[in-house]
């Protein structure tokens, strides 16, 4: 763990991901600009309420971790942010979710547009049964980019950003299913990066990975937050403590506490948070 923190420090000092001038400008507006503003979000699966009155702001270019015992609604909440939760037909919501000041449920913001801005990495690595190249080029292609030269650049850049280019540059035409689980997950991250989203939602991205792959993904998250805002759901409290700037604790569909990560882990306001992080339940 300490090793990782060392790494984290060193990578913070020497950035190797360049930020486009436009993005740099956006970032200069202030460190605490939020990408998501959620107000009084309620969500039901049929007649079962899964989320109660969630209000929460998610800051730009930071890592926001969401923790809580299984079934607490943390994944549901994450999937509400890019409307993936609607894959379940019986879902109903109330309240507002604003992405960059736009209500995501208003018609003007199509769900396809929202998802190009708010990418997602899933719990189990889920590459398509296609080549590495086709996996990463999937998003750009779906959105109409067909020129091979541009796609080549996007694939290379995305794989580099996902820190897997060196491993895979000679295996771009191999089926993604032939890769190891950790490599598959980083290809999935590269796939999400390929459309250059603003936000990346990660749903327990390391839960199916071995410790070494987990470490690589955690390091990657540290790098990525310079360019992207990241929301990560994890059942692993140490992971949240290691990699996040802010942490939200969910319990039974309610947001119990949301604070700076150090504060939440060292000096939680709520008794239930303390019980959870000290391992008294969950």
């Amino acid at each position: 763990m300490s090793k990782l923190q060392e790494k984290r420090k060193s990578s913070e000092s020497g950035s190797n991901i360049k930020v486009s001038p436009a993005r740099q400008q956006e970032m200069n507006k202030g460190p605490m600009k939020s990408v998501f503003e959620v107000e009084n979000l309620n969500l039901w699966y049929g007649s079962n309420q899964a989320l109660y009155e969630i209000s929460m702001q998610i800051p730009q270019n930071q890592v926001t971790a969401i923790i809580g015992p299984s079934g607490c609604g943390k994944s549901t909440y994450l999937k509400a942010l890019n409307r993936m939760v609607e894959m379940v037909p019986s879902v109903k919501t109330s309240g507002t979710i604003k992405y960059n000041d736009q209500n995501i449920y208003k018609d003007k913001l199509t769900v396809e547009y929202l998802r190009t801005k708010v990418g997602m990495v899933f719990q189990k690595p889920n590459p398509f049964p296609k080549s590495v190249y086709d996996n990463v080029a999937y998003g750009p292609r779906v959105h109409g980019i067909k020129k091979r030269a541009i796609l080549d650049q996007i694939v290379e850049k995305s794989l580099k950003d996902a820190a897997i280019w060196d491993e895979l540059k000679d295996r771009l035409n191999e089926n993604a299913y032939s890769l190891s689980g950790g490599q598959q997950q980083r290809v999935c991250i590269a796939r999400a990066l390929a459309v250059e989203p603003d936000v990346i939602l990660m749903d327990e991205p390391t839960s199916a990975l071995d410790p070494i792959s987990t470490l690589k993904v955690e390091e990657l998250v540290q790098e990525l937050k310079k360019k992207y805002s990241i929301v990560i759901v994890t059942h692993n409290m140490q992971q949240a403590a290691r990699i996040s700037d802010n942490t939200a604790f969910f319990l039974n569909g309610e947001l119990i506490e949301y604070a700076d990560t150090n504060k939440l882990f060292q000096n939680p306001d709520d008794k239930r948070t303390e019980d959870y992080i000290t391992g008294r339940f969950g």
């Binding site: 890019n82 993936m84 894959m87 769900v111 396809e112 547009y113 929202l114 998802r115 190009t116 990418g119 997602m120 899933f122 189990k124 889920n126 590459p127 398509f128 049964p129 296609k130 999937y138 998003g139 292609r141 779906v142 959105h143 999935c188 796939r191 999400a192 459309v195």
Partner: peptide, 27 residues
């Protein structure tokens, strides 16, 4: 065809038919 793979496509902002034509049917 597992749901996770279709979800990955929807998560990239693909439409329903794009998901079917590019992921589900080939698989």
């Amino acid at each position: 065809v597992p749901n996770e793979v279709k979800e990955a496509s929807y998560g990239m902002g693909a439409t329903k038919w794009q998901t079917i034509a590019r992921v589900t049917l080939p698989a």
